[in-house]
Simulated scan of single mutants.
Amino acid sequence: MRRALSSPSTSLFEQANVQPEELDAAIEDLVWAKASAILRFDHPLLRQVRAATGVNLVQVARRSRNLLIEIEQRSEIGPSWQYREHTPRRCTFSCRGQLPATIETALQGELLEQLVIPAAALQGITIANVAKSGDGWLNIDVAPSWHRF
């Protein structure tokens, strides 16, 4: 069965020499064992990706034939940014910060690199929308490209 994988996922897995088919097979094992279709932080394949890339990959989930990743980068005082793929059409990048409304509007359609310098795996992602949350975080809807494997 064909699955889809985002450009950030593809980049991370290539850097770590982890094949998407390996991740999909590991998730399939969980499904057959009646567990949720999510590889968690302590899974050996995720540890391999973290060791090879330095990117804090916290989970890989499978929903509707798509492998979806979550990354949380931390600083000494807490999370500094998060990248989450909820569905292929709903991916978010969150970070602390403040922006004037005019800049929020101007960033739509620009590359995420125009706002922040995230991990190399997140290069080439387009900003779809920027919104402020009440807790001092920016919630940025992003649009990575998706590939079939």
Rank of each mutant, 00 (worst) to 15 (best):
A35V: 09
I38H: 04
F41Y: 15
H43R: 05
P44W: 03
L45G: 02
L46G: 01
V49P: 01
R50H: 05
A51D: 03
A52M: 01
A52V: 01
V55G: 00
V55M: 03
L57E: 00
V58K: 08
Q59S: 12
A61M: 07
A61I: 06
R63I: 10
R63T: 09
N66E: 01
L67S: 01
I69L: 03
I69G: 00
E70V: 10
E70L: 10
E72D: 10
R74T: 11
R74C: 09
S75V: 11
E76P: 09
P79R: 15
S80V: 14
Q82L: 13
Q82E: 08
Y83D: 00
R84W: 09
P88Q: 00
R89S: 14
C91D: 00
T92K: 07
T92E: 05
C95H: 08
Q98F: 13
Q98V: 13
L99S: 05
L99M: 06
I103L: 15
E104D: 06
T105H: 15
A106Q: 14
A106H: 13
E110S: 15
E113Y: 10
Q114V: 14
L115Y: 08
I117Q: 15
P118L: 03
A119G: 06
A119V: 11
A121K: 03
L122D: 00
Q123H: 12
I125Q: 03
I125A: 04
T126M: 07
I127A: 04
I127L: 05
A128T: 13
N129Y: 13
G134D: 08
D135F: 13
G136T: 11
W137A: 04
W137M: 06
W137I: 09
D141W: 13
